[in-house]
Amino acid sequence: MIGYVTLGVSDMAKAKAFYTDLLGDQGVKVLLDMGRIAFIGKNMSSPMLAVCVPYNEQPNHPGNGNMVAIPAGSKESVDALYKKAIELGATCDGEPGQRIPDQFYGAYVKDPDGNKLAFFVFG
């Protein structure tokens, strides 16, 4: 259903390094780099994350209420992604924990540009 989600960033090199380092263990890499925008994912036919300098060349602004949720596969992977994101310069926006008993375990961070991410597992 989703082809890709785009996040505005202020520093392309820093954003590409953050996301490829964070998600590299899941087989993620920069798939297409067009200078102002780069597509990051496993392959071009799977959902991707794009990072870009805004087209109008104005400063990027994270959206209030916008969030990209990244499936982690397990509670341990949620914890590991959260820890790695913090080590890579993200800030905590909700430590790992059970949010809905027996249904949803998640953690929340803001990337170096302030974009909100969730790492989660259902069940």
Rank of each mutant, 00 (worst) to 15 (best):
E87Y: 09
G73A: 12
D93Y: 14
I70G: 05
V28E: 05
G89N: 14
K116M: 08
I37Q: 03
R99E: 10
V30K: 02
L88N: 09
K84I: 08
M1K: 13
G94W: 14
Q98I: 02
L117V: 01
A90L: 11
D102Y: 10
S74P: 15
P47I: 00
V68H: 05
G106N: 09
N43H: 05
L88F: 07
Q103R: 10
G35T: 04
K116N: 02
L23Q: 05
E76P: 10
A69L: 15
Y19V: 05
I37E: 01
M34L: 13
N43M: 03
Y105R: 06
N60Y: 11
A15W: 01
S77K: 15
H61T: 14
D111A: 02
V53A: 01
L32N: 10
G73P: 12
N66Y: 12
V109D: 06
G114I: 11
P101F: 03
Y82A: 05
I100T: 07
S46L: 11
E57K: 08
L117P: 03
K116A: 07
A50H: 03
K29Y: 07
A90W: 15
V68Q: 06
L49F: 00
F119Y: 09
P101A: 03
L23I: 13
I2D: 04
Y19Q: 03
K75C: 04
Y55E: 10
T91M: 15
K42V: 11
G94R: 15
G97P: 02
D102K: 12
H61I: 14
I40Y: 03
K75R: 07
D93S: 15
T91E: 13
S46W: 12
G3R: 13
F120Y: 13
N66A: 08
N56F: 08
F39H: 06
A72W: 09
M1S: 12
M44I: 04
D21Q: 04
P101G: 00
T6Y: 15
Y55A: 10
M44Y: 10
I2Y: 09
K14M: 01
Y82K: 07
A50N: 00
G94Q: 09
